[in-house]
Design a protein around this nucleic acid. Structure first.
Lengths: 244, 244
DNA sequence: CGATATGTTGAACATTCTCAAGGGATGTGG
DNA sequence: CCACATCCCTTGAGAATGTTCAACATATCG
């Protein structure tokens, strides 16, 4: 069993918070210099390979942390073997839950992924002394809750075509949130997952994903560059297809 | 437009926190006497009729609060008119979001519903002075997030039959959380919604809901007493059908 | 180059939806 | 008390979206 205590990858090179790519989006976003010093002293970078298990449902969680680079997913495995991807962890997202010992879902790295981790005990004590971090965490949790509820609409009320469009728009928008560029300008997204994993996330089959990607390419809304890289020539058009 | 500032129902009779039905499940669960005094001074009960709108998406939210009795739902309305119920507010659930002015979703009372409300400004200042409440709120938000993610599996990977079973088990389990009784013992649940609203929540059609309820009755897992009251003679059996 | 993993396309099938009709409770007015 | 209206629910038959099963294509990597 692999978890945060047993990274299989070589120890990640650790950077200063000053030039952190997620400095102003993550749990530390509202920290002042003094708060940051506390976090900086406690942090440890961890690196995971694609497909590597970061946590398993029920595991003791000794660490919490932020996704720095890469992507991971939360998986809900059912007793009968069926599984559903119930969340995506992209750079700046927080992993772990203060006040809860065991993981609720499996967490799997989708691609090469770096985490900025804090030992649970250390993080909890920083939380106590630094209300700003607790507030930020609450805010992020409520954002995630809103996103998860909005995703219910994607799974529940959208057609296969709309789901695929919604998925690409979500990736595009998350990139724009990090780089601040124009949301309507053409862009290139790198897919963090295989067709099969997309199918899992969108509650479709791999075949339907494939067919709908082909269809959207035919409509000029997606322009595959390679299997994992896709150009979006017309984000507003794609957003319209995504519908809401 | 109706919202928390304009309840159409007569002013609700207000009770002391001491004999509150959700005293130990709501946001105030971990409050000591002194914290409770602060909340008690700021609280106002509100009552809503079935079908009444409590909030509309985008509304300014001047109040936050807990559901005391009844049930309400969070609705996500899409531009094309399709809608999806993205959450259920049952007794003890919290409504509203500190640090956010506008509502993300519509909130509609499903049945006669009482809320224990606090003016946003007052609540925010209590939050600041009472870290226990902030912690409890974070904990509840993370519980809701987990529930919402688990519901993704219901919508995404379950058959109509499994969805119906999951729905009844969810209601049964929420009742058991409030009354502490045995989760495996036969019980009677009161449905807070019509077949059409159930369909909306489960992402099915009213017709499919009706057919599957009939089928589960045939299997001895549901025993309708009236349209809105159903006996569950065999919760473990129903839970098995719900599957995960 | 051959092997394995990943992605695409095709055709038959199944679950659920849509459209349509009818049943049963409750309420209102005559 | 009955006729009628309304709302909610149930049942049926055909249609449709997405699935399943299967073959084939493409890519990556030893």
């Amino acid at each position: 069993m692999q978890n945060l205590r047993q990274p299989l990858q070589p120890r990640a090179e650790q950077h200063a918070c000053g030039d952190c790519p997620i400095r102003h989006q993550a749990v530390c976003a509202r920290c002042e210099a003094e708060d940051l010093a506390l976090l900086e002293a406690a942090k440890v970078f961890r690196r995971y390979a694609p497909g590597q298990s970061i946590l398993r449902a029920g595991d003791r969680m000794d660490f919490v942390g932020s996704v720095l680079t890469g992507a991971a997913c939360l998986m809900h495995l059912r007793p009968d073997g069926r599984s559903q991807m119930v969340g995506l962890l992209l750079p700046s997202h927080f992993l772990g839950r203060p006040g809860r010992d065991h993981a609720a879902f499996d967490v799997v790295a989708l691609e090469e992924t770096e985490l900025c981790c804090f030992r649970r005990a250390a993080f909890d004590s920083i939380l106590e002394r630094t209300p700003r971090i607790g507030q930020r965490l609450l805010d992020m949790a409520l954002d995630e809750l809103e996103a998860s509820r909005a995703w219910l609409t994607v799974l529940g009320r959208k057609t296969a075509r709309e789901k695929i469009a919604s998925y690409f728009i979500m990736l595009h928008d998350h990139d724009r949130r990090l780089d601040g560029a124009d949301r309507d300008a053409p862009s290139r997204v790198t897919l963090p997952m295989t067709r099969e994993q997309m199918a899992d996330h969108l509650d479709l089959t791999m075949e339907t994903v494939s067919r709908q990607v082909t269809a959207l390419r035919g409509d000029g809304l997606l322009q595959p560059v390679s299997a994992r890289v896709v150009d979006l020539p017309d984000p507003p058009g794609l957003r319209a297809v995504a519908g809401g």
